[in-house]
Design a protein around this nucleic acid. Structure first.
Length: 301
DNA sequence: CATTGTTTATTTAGGT
DNA sequence: ACCTAAATAAACAATG
């Protein structure tokens, strides 16, 4: 082993995209949501690589948060001091690591604007409809990943839960040559022996856990979760007495047939998500597929 | 005023 | 090689 003195494996860029890292951070939190600063902290705490050039990667991270529909903003409760909102994972973002790569998803998660989508039985969907509808809010309506959208109550799974990551195709996990299990391990998740070995050898630093996470023990969070894993203790009331969500959706409704059906299948009806991402579609409903302004350059290298 | 969010534009790189 | 997701840069608006 190289002397972990300074430069060694520890400052190599982790094989995770900002999306992965952010999702990890969020998923790791007890409430399944975190303020920006805590996401930063999470990442910096376990990946030395990100203790430098903060200006640069944090900008990118921020960009990712607002650009990707898989992240949703949850307003801060009046009694919770601090700046921005909390960030959580969109309930329907599904298993974004589906292909086993944490560097690149096969398809971007986009919320589609369909005021009258057919699915509304989901507990959270119901909750969404009930409460805010802010145009601009990514979770205003239905959504889908890779073209699929609606899910039926029945099988729920954590988008970034270990089961979804280590629990299936072994190949996937190793795909990026990653330390995932290491991360998971230190996040308090069980790690299959097979994986832990791969990991320990190269990412020992992922070790220090919690304590940085505002002192909240990673474990004791499951207590007040309802049947489907939805936290019930997140609701609050605002000044007008209206109930507002303060809680993210830790779980993801999965079509009974398994995770994200059709994801690996043929083309879907979903528009090829060209360059447009965010959801402004909310206003102008779904009209023409906006002029795709893709780069024309094919630079050199 | 520094942090947090949004948005546009361009470049890089993953995966097939 | 191609397609497109992800990274990077940069210009602001909002907000405490």
């Amino acid at each position: 082993m190289p002397r972990p003195g300074k430069n060694s494996y520890s400052d190599q860029k982790p094989p995770y995209s900002y999306i992965s890292l952010t999702a990890m951070a969020i998923q790791n939190s007890s409430e399944k949501m975190l303020p920006l600063s805590d996401i930063y902290k999470f990442i910096m705490d376990r990946f030395p690589y990100y203790r430098e050039n903060t200006q640069r990667w944090q900008n990118s991270l921020r960009h990712n948060l607002s650009f990707n529909d898989c992240f949703i903003k949850i307003p801060r409760r009046p009694d919770q001091p601090g700046k921005g909102s909390f960030w959580a994972l969109h309930p329907d973002c599904g298993d974004m690591f589906e292909n086993g790569s944490f560097l690149r998803r096969r398809k971007r998660f986009k919320v589609l604007r369909a005021e009258h989508m057919s699915c509304k039985s989901s507990p959270m969907m119901h909750y969404f409809h009930h409460h805010h509808h802010h145009p601009g809010s990514k979770l205003a309506t239905a959504s889908g990943y890779g073209g699929i959208s609606c899910a039926q109550p029945g099988g729920f799974k954590h988008p970034f839960a270990i089961e979804n990551i280590i629990g299936r195709d072994y190949k996937g996990v190793v795909a990026g040559g990653l330390p995932l299990s290491s991360v998971m391990h230190h996040l308090g998740y069980p790690v299959p022996p097979q994986l832990s070995s791969v990991v320990n050898s190269m990412w020992p630093h992922v070790g220090m856990l919690s304590e940085s996470m505002s002192g909240v023990p990673v474990s004791a969070a499951a207590s007040e979760y309802a049947p489907f894993g939805v936290s019930t203790k997140g609701l609050y009331h605002n000044a007008s007495g209206q109930t507002l969500p303060a809680v993210p959706v830790p779980i993801k409704p999965t079509p009974s047939l398994g995770p994200v059906p059709g994801l690996s299948g043929p083309a879907h009806l979903c528009t090829p998500a060209s360059a447009m991402e965010k959801s402004d579609l909310l206003e102008a409903s779904q009209r023409l597929p906006l002029p795709t302004l893709l780069s024309h350059q094919r630079q050199n290298k």
